[in-house]
């Protein structure tokens, strides 16, 4: 469903650039690969420059990781659990934030693309990763799988299932059903929260660019930087809190 109105082209579905062995290569997937590549490059460079007596950049990364780890430990109230889930939670934050910030760069979006002869329009080569529901859904599925895994390994499959299905009392039974529904609803809330925020931001900037290309987008871009970081943090924090709920004994 493409909403086309006087130069602004907005589609909910990702732009398909081509297809390789049955896998559609979308602009968002390509951007995602670039983000993963850049993150990998950065990680390797960071790893090779690690020193016991740190420089300024290393201090920033270290204190961020140290702070996040301490917070994770504080929430989970368990050192072993924190050590196990911290890399995933932190990676969620870093990946989503990096993807969002990369999506604000000038060549991501409409400017650089493939000119499709038949349709007479430019298909962008790069597009903000989280404007693609496939990406946010993938992250949501991973997060929910991690949460369920955490619950099952911490409590055992039977006890964990007992949180959702129990026949102790009528109220308990319905509470269990509600818990089960909310568990599944997380998939939707996780994926659509991120998708909605970033997609809306992209649309907002596109519209602003269309109406007032020189000044208006600046504060909006600043705001989107903020939103990009916050959404990464929200996704990671919610995963952390749901893990905590999952590993807590039912009562």
């Amino acid at each position: 469903m493409a909403a086309e109105a006087a130069g602004i082209h907005i589609a909910l579905a990702p732009y398909v650039l081509g297809e390789v062995a049955g896998l559609p290569i979308t602009a968002t997937l390509l951007t995602s690969w670039v983000v993963v590549g850049l993150l990998t490059l950065w990680a390797v460079l960071f790893y090779r420059s690690l020193k016991l007596v740190p420089g300024r950049g290393q201090v920033l990364v270290e204190s961020t990781i140290g702070f996040a780890y301490d917070y994770t430990k504080e929430v989970l109230e368990d050192d072993k659990l924190a050590r196990r889930y911290f890399p995933i939670i932190m990676s969620i934050f870093v990946f989503i934030m990096a993807a969002n910030l990369f999506g604000l760069l000038p060549f991501v979006g409409g400017a650089v693309g493939i000119y499709e002869a038949g349709h007479d329009k430019l298909i962008p080569l790069f597009y903000p990763v989280n404007t693609d529901i496939n990406m946010t859904l993938a992250m949501a599925i991973v997060a929910v799988l991690v949460i369920e895994f955490a619950g099952i390994t911490a409590l055992g499959a039977l006890k964990y299932a007992g949180k959702f299905v129990n026949f102790h009392s009528v109220i308990g039974f319905f509470v269990g059903i509600i818990e089960l529904v909310s568990e599944v609803a997380r998939l939707v809330t996780f994926s659509f929260r991120l998708f909605g925020n970033i997609f809306a931001g992209k649309v907002l900037i596109l519209v602003a660019l269309y109406f007032l290309p020189y000044l208006l987008p600046v504060p909006l871009l600043v705001y989107e930087v903020f939103v990009g970081i916050i959404q990464g943090a929200v996704f990671a924090l919610l995963t952390l809190f749901f893990i905590k709920i999952a590993v807590t004994e039912p009562h």
């Binding site: 559609p24 997937l29 995602s32 993150l39 990680a43 960071f46 870093v94 496939n134 993938a138």
Partner: peptide, 22 residues
């Protein structure tokens, strides 16, 4: 397929960041 591709991307990020940074 795209969901799986993106999940793989995230898995790569987890492994890379875990090994080289965290």
């Amino acid at each position: 397929k795209l969901i799986i591709a993106q999940a793989i991307n995230f898995a790569i990020v987890v492994v890379v960041l875990g090994y080289f940074v965290f």
